[in-house]
């Protein structure tokens, strides 16, 4: 019942999605191409999104390449230095911060997101949230008995988990630094640092791979428990019968992938149109259909319980600005305690 009420509420936010300005569409079609540097998984979302856009606007071809946040930023930066900017828009949780000081990010406030909560949009228009991440612990349901499943961060300090907790080596808010941030902001500086020191004694194992791979190691039984994994990754695997469960270890950490437009890009109108499409109900639905968690408050996730409004779990948000300003501090704590 609560679920239906929530869906009804979301649907009533706006009866229909605004179609983009016909002048923008015409200018974009004239440009004919849009180049997207993505940090997302090609088969899972980049290709379906590009295909949906090309289907709606047959005159525009989407070209894409995929790399990690830092690599995407370096590529855009180096192209700009050589005065050969190739890309029109890019996404990523951290990419924009590596580029905005260099003046490589265009300001654009997409119409499709104009009624979204402020935390999902940059005031200046440098970025808009594309999809949401909820970071939490996951457990192997075969190797961990129900009564042993940890429920709180304090439970992670149980001696039985020493050397048994896996996490990624990704030094972004989606990895150990995000965990450190979450602990420090929810427990306070002193208690938080005491907790982190105790957690370091548990010797969490740094897996040299992405968060998805860490979860796969939990599923294969190599590690019974992992932290900083994504809840929707677990539900994708559960649907395929994997012995895994994501835990409501509250608060979960909320972060987001951001979409931005490159300054002085070769196809500025096509870039705007593509961004409008990705943030429209239609584009957000493509995300949801492919298991991602849409940023739009109007579009529910494929497994609606994976978002806090319907899932009813508490979250602690790491805002893009905090991530930019404080990440080096969290990385320093990681280096001090966990390396």
């Amino acid at each position: 019942m609560r679920f239906f009420l929530a869906v009804l509420l979301l649907a009533s936010l706006r009866a229909e999605a605004a179609e983009p300005d016909p002048a923008l569409v015409a200018a974009a079609v004239k440009e004919g191409t849009v180049v997207w540097y993505s940090t997302l998984i090609v088969n899972q979302i980049v290709r379906p999104m590009a295909e949906a856009f090309e289907k709606k606007y047959p005159g525009i071809k989407v070209q894409y390449s995929r790399a990690a946040s830092s690599d995407v930023a370096l590529k855009i930066r180096n192209e700009a230095r050589a005065r050969r900017t190739q890309s029109d828009l890019f996404d990523g949780s951290n990419t924009v911060f590596l580029l905005e000081d260099a003046g490589l990010v265009a300001d654009y406030r997409p119409r499709a997101a104009e009624d979204w909560p402020q935390e999902l949009r940059d005031k200046q228009g440098r970025w808009t949230a594309l999809n949401m991440f909820y970071w939490t612990a996951a457990v192997n349901t075969n190797t961990v008995k129900p009564e042993d499943v940890p429920h709180s961060y304090a439970d992670l300090l149980n001696p039985r988990w020493k050397g048994q907790i896996a996490w990624t080596y990704d030094l972004t808010p989606g990895g150990p630094p995000g965990f450190i941030y979450n602990i420090l902001t929810t427990m306070g500086q002193d208690k938080g640092m005491a907790y982190l020191r105790a957690f370091a004694k548990q010797e969490p194992v740094t897996i040299p791979a992405a968060q998805r791979v860490v979860l796969d190691k939990v599923i294969s039984g190599e590690y019974p428990l992992a932290v900083m994994t994504l809840n929707y990754h677990a539900t994708i695997s559960i649907a395929k019968g994997a012995p895994v469960q994501w835990l409501r270890m509250e608060p979960l950490l909320q972060s987001m992938s951001l979409i931005s437009i490159v300054n002085n890009s070769p196809h500025p109108n096509a870039a705007r149109l593509f961004e409008e499409f990705m943030l429209s109900d239609e584009g957000q639905k493509v995300l949801a259909d492919n298991d991602y968690l849409p940023a739009s408050p109007r579009v529910p996730a494929k497994v609606p319980q994976n978002k806090p409004e319907i899932g009813g779990f508490k979250v602690n948000t790491v805002s893009p600005d905090q991530a930019r300003d404080e990440l080096p501090k969290w990385v320093a704590i990681y280096h001090e305690l966990f390396r």
Binding site: S70, L74, N94, F97, L98, T172, T206, R339
Partner: peptide, 18 residues
């Protein structure tokens, strides 16, 4: 947690900012 030169180089390039 055993780091050598090559993994240190790699880690320095993947932190944000690199």
């Amino acid at each position: 947690r055993i780091y050598v030169l090559t993994t240190d180089v790699y880690e320095a390039t993947i932190v944000v900012p690199p």
